[in-house]
């Protein structure tokens, strides 16, 4: 399996505090990966680095077949290259309808002029409908997204992510604040997505991770502590120490 994203030897410090310490990570096309780790382990910061929000002090972040470095690209360029991101706190555009949120995310030309001259085609409307069906929000399309429930906002954000049609999805705590049924639905959306693209899921909930049924990377104090199947990492003594010794 070819590598899609390769992070190697990356370190970041905030005012002397090393949030990420010599971290290396790889993921291939069409792979699902869960990242777990205690609070403050650097999971969100890792996503910040890949998406260009935070610049590492050292290390490399290499992307795709052409092995381009993401470190020289802006957030928007990285997103256009095919990295989509869901934030820890659901961030949708609350004053706009669910439809407009999805339409904005739909993979299309992103330049100001082409967006200004953009005319919504039947095809795009159908695509949005299809996505809405996938995330279970068909009935909510005309509503303002600010009126949605917390779980629905999480889905909308996942829907926006899928609309971007990225090659790599970075999903930060997608199940936080969801009811058990909602969690199940979220799992199936992610598993479905991982059939055609790489998906990285950060999650605290072990039950959720178990259902994803994928390779797990454990982060601790900014570096990888263990990697492997969930059973493998949870039987690792270091991991047990970190989780119980807190």
């Amino acid at each position: 399996m070819s590598t899609l994203l390769e992070v190697s030897g990356v370190s970041v410090s905030f005012d002397g505090f090393k949030a990420i310490n010599n971290l290396s990570f790889q993921i291939g096309n069409a792979e699902m990966r869960a990242i777990i780790g205690p609070n403050g382990a650097g999971k969100t910061t890792f996503m910040d680095i890949v998406t260009g929000k935070t610049r590492p002090n050292e290390g490399r972040v290499i992307w795709g077949e052409k092995s381009v470095s993401l470190l020289k690209m802006s957030e928007a360029q990285i997103a256009r290259a095919g990295v989509g991101r869901k934030f820890q706190r659901p961030t949708v555009f609350e004053d706009q309808s669910v439809f407009d949120n999805l339409l904005m995310a739909l993979k299309k030309q992103r330049g100001p002029l082409s967006v200004l001259l953009y005319r919504k085609s039947e095809e795009d409307t159908a695509k949005v409908q299809e996505l809405a069906a996938e995330i279970g929000l068909v009935d909510q399309l005309p509503r303002k997204s600010g009126e949605l429930s917390h779980g629905q906002k999480q889905w909308l954000e996942i829907g926006m992510l899928l609309a971007q049609d990225p090659r790599l999805l970075l999903v930060d705590e997608p199940a936080a604040g969801m009811t058990p049924e909602e969690r199940e639905h979220t799992t199936s959306i992610l598993v479905e997505a991982a059939k055609t693209r790489a998906v990285v899921v950060v999650e605290h909930d072990m039950e959720f991770v178990r259902r994803l049924n994928c390779k797990v990377t454990v982060l601790h104090e900014g570096s990888v502590l263990a990697e492997g199947s969930l059973d493998h990492v949870t039987s690792n003594q270091d991991v047990i120490d970190v989780y119980l010794g807190r």
Binding site: E75, A79, R80, T91, V115
Partner: peptide, 18 residues
């Protein structure tokens, strides 16, 4: 939509690729 998005959360708009 994009303009209002920039007003409300410009970082999010960036991560959409705009």
């Amino acid at each position: 939509s994009v303009l209002r998005g920039i007003r409300d959360d410009e970082a999010r708009v960036r991560f959409l690729g705009y």
